[in-house]
């Protein structure tokens, strides 16, 4: 393996390693086998066989529905001395905003509400285009965007935070789980699964076919 003076990874038969950008020689692989980078050892390409985008598309559709449900239903209700309050995900954002902590509010809004929605929407767009074989505009950009937003889909972390919050609020008053908590949990699982099925190699190959 030597450093290429001409961009080898642009030549047919060679792939650029996603981790270290080394040019790796592509070869025919048995099913489920992976091509690993000689330099950094990261998986460069995996022979996925006849895997399709349908699971990713289905999960993204379900995920978007769950985003709506998780945001529209209260996650928990809290009761102190006869004052009952139901908490949506957005209630916390507004609470922080009202107390003057808008940067923290913005962070919570972005990572808990906007991030998951945008991530799932980007996955949905790319997966749908690949499933239907449509050359929709800006597919490559959407795929890149999905990859970036993946690390901003922090609903699973939010789900853990709700558990801790319930424990803490229990010290202050009467707290009860509501339907929204179930949707948040379902959304967490859905987000974790979507990442498993939305395979970068598959996306790459599909986009090349469509182009």
């Amino acid at each position: 393996m030597s450093a290429p003076s001409i961009p080898l990874e642009k030549t047919p038969g060679w792939i650029s390693c996603p981790e270290c950008e080394a040019a790796c020689r592509d070869r025919a692989l048995p099913r489920r086998a992976a091509l690993r980078c000689v330099r950094c050892g990261v998986q460069v390409r995996k022979e996925t066989g006849a895997r399709s985008f349908q699971p990713a598309w289905a999960l993204a559709t379900a995920g978007l529905l769950l985003v709506a449900l998780a945001n529209a239903n209260p996650v928990l209700t809290f009761d102190v001395a006869g004052n009952t309050q139901s908490n949506l995900m957005v209630t916390g954002v507004l609470g922080l905003f009202d107390q003057g902590y808008w940067p923290v509010a913005a962070l919570v809004f972005f990572a808990g509400i906007a991030g998951p929605a945008l991530h799932l929407a980007a996955v949905w767009y790319v997966a749908a285009a690949c499933c239907l074989g449509r050359r929709w505009p800006a597919l490559r950009r959407a795929a890149k965007f999905a990859e970036v937003m993946e690390s901003w889909n922090l609903v699973p972390v939010y789900a853990v935070a709700t558990v801790v919050a319930v424990v803490k609020l229990d010290m202050l008053g009467a707290v009860a789980w509501q339907q929204g908590a179930l949707w948040v949990l379902a959304l967490s699982l859905c987000s974790l699964l979507v990442v498993q099925f939305f395979d970068r190699d598959l996306v790459e190959r599909c986009l090349e076919e469509l182009a």
């Binding site: 996650v75 928990l76 809290f78 102190v80 001395a81 004052n83 309050q85 908490n87 209630t91 916390g92 954002v93 507004l94 609470g95 922080l96 009202d98 107390q99 902590y101 923290v104 509010a105 962070l107 919570v108 990572a111 808990g112 690390s151 922090l154 972390v157 939010y158 853990v160 935070a161 709700t162 801790v164 919050a165 803490k168 609020l169 202050l172 008053g173």
Partner: peptide
Amino acid sequence: SWSMVDVFLLSILAAVGQLGVLSSVQA
């Protein structure tokens, strides 16, 4: 990204902030 637990927790607890004088959470 798991350190966001504390920020989310703060947001959920801060929502209680508006709930009367006896019990409140202020960021």
